[in-house]
Structure formats: C-alpha cells, structure tokens
Amino acid sequence: MRKLLIAVFALFAATTTSFAQETAEQPNPSVLPMFGNIPKTEAEQIKDQKFLSSCDNSFSTRQEASQFFMNRGWEYFNEGQVDTAVYRFNLAWLLNPNNANTYWAFGLVTFGQGKLSESIGYYEKALAIEPKNSLMLSDIASSYLALHEAEQKKSKKKKTFKKVVEYTSKALEADSSNAFALYTMSKVKYQEKKYEDAWAYLHKGREQNVANIDFVYLTNLMAEMPDPKGFFKNN
C-alpha cells in the first residue's frame, strides 16, 4: 500500500511541476474547475488512466480516493493556495463525478474569483446530487444575492432576487440554525425594506455564529433602523 501511494504522489508531482510551464496567456487546465471543460489529448487521457489505475490499487474504492483528494484540496484552499487546491478538486472529480463536494468546491472557488454565474452553475450541479444540503443552498443564495446587487448597480432588472429568496428559504427549511442562511435572509428583508424582520434574522444568525456578521451591511441596516434589541449601537 505504501509503495502504491508513493506512485500516486509521484504522478501527482509530475503534473504539479507542469503548472510552471504554462504561460499567463494559456492557463493550465489542471487548475481550472473540471479541467476547464477542455477536450483532452490522447496523451492526457493516458495520464488520467494511469492515475485512476494507481488509485484503484491504493484505495478500497474510487469514492474513498475522491474524498482523500478533496481533503487535500481543502487543506490547500484554507492556506490560500487556490490553484493547487483546484488541481486536487479536479482529481477528486475525475475519480468520482458524482461527488457533490467537488462541484461545491468549484462553486466556492469561482465565487471567490467574482465569477458569479459560473459559481451558480457549479452549485446547481452539487444540489442536483444533494438537493437538501443546507450549506450548499445558502452558498448558492449568496451567489445570487451578489449577482442581484451587481445588477442593481447597473440598473438591470432580472429575476435573481427571487432565486435568493427561494434558495435561502430552502436552506432554512433544511436547517433553521444555518447562520449563513439567516444572515442572507436578513439581507433579503432589508432589500424588501422590512427592517424589523431584517434585525430579527440578523440576531438569529448572530446567536449561531457572530463571526459571520457583515459589518458594512450592519452599518447600512442601523442607518435605516436602530437595533430594536439595543445590542448594536451607533457611536
């Protein structure tokens, strides 16, 4: 088993080294979600097969191998090494295209890059597999909310706000203690000018996780209506 794992990482290192050989004009597909959806050459397909065969010999199932590379990907993601993380997520996806977490990860990455419509597409793929995952639902709601706010600045009128409400409601139905969804619902109520309700949801979110508070939004809400509970005060 140890020798087989070493073989997997050797293949890993060879591909990682090739990152540096790519130019800025031609990003390496390995660091793009789902390998950039670019058709692979015969040589790349052979490399994929060698990788899959190595994993088949090293892990009990491809699902187990997929989760292994997802875990490594999250480690790099949390360290801010996004390209390296995406490569691991891609390997996890290659091993198990039905792993909802791979699409969720791609959604988080593209959201962080400001590619809102693309992130929504990946979240939708994840939700097609796990439709009642509250955190996934709240993340797609966040993408739709960011898209809605961007459209407002450009005076565009689209139906993104309905999507925000829809997915946030589903997230709270799946888990009423989801702090992310509670904060997003607070912003929904703010958009609807229902400031008392906005405060109610904000406080519910604060009780679950105070670290998630958006202080720019908090300032805007206080400008419309003082905190009924007196917990937050303008200086």
Rank of each mutant, 00 (worst) to 15 (best):
R2W: 01
K3D: 13
L4A: 10
L5F: 10
A7W: 00
V8F: 02
A13Y: 02
A13F: 07
A14V: 14
T16Q: 10
S18H: 07
S18I: 11
Q21H: 03
T23Y: 01
A24P: 00
A24H: 02
N28R: 02
P29M: 11
S30W: 04
S30D: 13
L32E: 13
P33M: 12
M34I: 13
F35G: 09
G36N: 09
G36M: 08
Q45R: 09
I46Y: 03
K47L: 11
K50C: 03
L52T: 05
S54A: 15
S54I: 03
C55S: 08
S58M: 07
S58L: 04
F59D: 04
T61D: 09
E64D: 13
Q67C: 06
F69R: 01
N71I: 08
R72V: 09
R72F: 09
G73T: 07
W74K: 04
W74A: 05
F77Q: 08
F77S: 09
N78C: 02
N78K: 13
E79C: 06
Q81I: 09
V82Q: 07
A85H: 01
A92N: 02
W93P: 00
L94R: 03
L95Q: 04
N96R: 05
A100L: 04
N101Y: 08
L108E: 10
V109N: 05
Q113P: 01
Q113V: 05
G114Q: 06
S119F: 02
G121M: 09
E124I: 07
A126T: 09
E130K: 07
S134Y: 03
D139N: 14
S142Q: 15
A146E: 05
L147Q: 07
H148R: 04
H148I: 07
E149L: 15
Q152N: 07
K154D: 15
S155K: 15
K156W: 11
K158A: 12
K158N: 15
K162C: 01
K162V: 09
K163S: 14
V164F: 08
V165K: 14
E166I: 02
S169K: 08
S169N: 14
E173R: 01
E173H: 00
D175G: 04
S176H: 05
A179P: 01
A181T: 04
L182Q: 06
Y183T: 12
V188D: 03
V188R: 01
K189G: 00
Q191L: 08
E192M: 12
K193Q: 15
K194A: 15
K194M: 13
K194D: 15
Y195G: 06
A198D: 06
A200T: 12
Y201S: 08
L202R: 00
H203R: 11
E207V: 07
N212M: 14
D214E: 14
D214A: 14
D214M: 14
D214N: 15
F215W: 05
T219L: 12
N220P: 00
L221Q: 08
D227N: 10
D227K: 10
G230N: 06
F232D: 08
N234Q: 11
